[in-house]
Design a protein around this nucleic acid. Sequence first.
DNA 1: GTATGATTCGAAACCGGTTCCATAGAACAA
DNA 2: TTGTTCTATGGAACCGGTTTCGAATCATAC
Lengths: 334, 334
Amino acid sequence: MSPTIRDVAKKANVGIATVSRVINNNTSVSAETRNAVLTAIEELDYTPNPIARQLSTGRTLTIGVIVPNLTSPSYVERLRGVQTALAESEYHMVLYSVGNPVDRDNYFKELSRNGLVDGILIISLPPNDAQAERFAQSDVPTVLIDAYHEQLCSVLTDDVKGGEMATQHLIDLGHTKIGFLSETLETPFHPSSYYRYQGYRKALTENNIPFDETYRISGASGRMHAREMARQLLAMQIPPSAIFAGNDIQAIGILDTARELQIEVPSELSVIGFDGIRDAEYTNLTTIDQHLHESGEEGVKMLLQELESLSDSPAQKRLALKLVQRNTTRPLIG
Amino acid sequence: MSPTIRDVAKKANVGIATVSRVINNNTSVSAETRNAVLTAIEELDYTPNPIARQLSTGRTLTIGVIVPNLTSPSYVERLRGVQTALAESEYHMVLYSVGNPVDRDNYFKELSRNGLVDGILIISLPPNDAQAERFAQSDVPTVLIDAYHEQLCSVLTDDVKGGEMATQHLIDLGHTKIGFLSETLETPFHPSSYYRYQGYRKALTENNIPFDETYRISGASGRMHAREMARQLLAMQIPPSAIFAGNDIQAIGILDTARELQIEVPSELSVIGFDGIRDAEYTNLTTIDQHLHESGEEGVKMLLQELESLSDSPAQKRLALKLVQRNTTRPLIG
DNA sequence: GTATGATTCGAAACCGGTTCCATAGAACAA
DNA sequence: TTGTTCTATGGAACCGGTTTCGAATCATAC
């Protein structure tokens, strides 16, 4: 077995407390003793057992990240941001990947309870009131990324406003027949698509453009399903001249279909996405950039702050949205 | 603070050993005592402190996953596989994301040393001899995914063979002017591009097709750089009629450029990738599927086995490669 | 009634650190 | 010289579990 602090103490002819002081750079050790201890450590190739240290200090130096299965690039990008910010800290990251509501609830309960982690970061998984209450009561600080609850710290996106911005952009370009294509609006997870839809409706209303139910389509997530839905939208007698997609992946699916149908983008069809994933840049997609990477970093910052000193009122940070115009939207001709 | 096992013992009027027995389903507890303990646990809302348990059992129920920064979809896909397999076990996953060789070496050293994790999974980061030696000596089982070292367990891909398969496919289609586009062949990380290049060369040789140095180009990774490199290849006086890309992302970059230059794929240019990421399917890319997801799952399986009983000779599992023909390759006309 | 064995259970040791507290000795002041 | 303060240090308690070991209890056998 690996050597323990007692082995070091014996070898250096000192007490274990002294060894501990040396390890932790406690000043009150004479240079002589310190050297003796250091050489003993060297000779035994000793490293302190982190678990024992965790038990006695009460800190695990670990933060738990609860995230939906890495099915969507946006989760991955947020996670990258988390990773980036965490790398500069002394904390490690345990990944809890949730595939269904049961997983989610289990992780929520498990982590908020006992001292497995020092802090919790939750990505795109809004807790219900009871769960939020638990987190708030628990003594492990929790930060939500891309989700909101009044009781908890959060880094969030104004999806309604983003939806409005996207739609307004299309309207500004002269479009009035504007389609909306998204994931199912009723999801057990984060209803961001629904909020974006609300923004879409709001923009229409504000510009006195009547909402046409037939221009709205939603279904399963993913590029393939988006293609299919786009086919349906574009096969209408009077198809939309522009489509706002609930996220970038779906927007890219629409572009796929447009190419397949030889509908030229943006001259014959404008498409705008939402998220600002990397593929949006590669495909020259106009989109609403919600600063995914930054959201991860900000979440970590907030959590680290919370770990320093638990604030009383939960901090809330809203990330700015940015319309990034590329080559999939342009003024309507005629 | 949360209640401890002693609180429960006091409340139930039993010794702590008995409480421990109840928690761990040890049989030798009378039904009566067991019930008393269970109700005490219930009333106090007690859960055992996992850190304390870890210290006394010596197991952390955690496995460390060392992976390059999630820059490439292939790492993410492998990680998903790991996640899938791990979800069915009792283990958690700590993610160590490495951005540079220094990170890598630190993590290698740190994790192999002390009991922070019960096992280590290393993705696409081949250790050098000294490091492999460390891992082999250490008492924490280690499995390499997409990397090989004779001293360690591994799940691996035959990149040379894959490169050969891809090239042979193009040759079978009648191509002889076959380009090779990849990442820099000298990388501090995993030299898979180099192996694939070797396979390419091998296939050419075996078919008596002279290798033309000007048909080979390599540079920085990523779709954007691939586009630029593709432009160079395709601007040649006698451009290749087919290109084998070192990975799918680069193949997609080539497709981007082809579209930009209005070179029709596959009629004017065949393109084959390597990896089998999801986007390959979406873009109808012919590729060599190396079963990324499965590699993650297999790595976990192997590691779990190793955790059960440390085998003496390191297990090696080679994943089959599969040519998936889609719509970016076709017989050369004329 | 005593010997034997099985069952149930608690005290205490242990895992490997950190930290409180008491003390020895040095340094300094009067 | 004596008293006081400060520094360096070790012993022991502690974190919260698991596990060993021995003892108490009970049933059964003789």
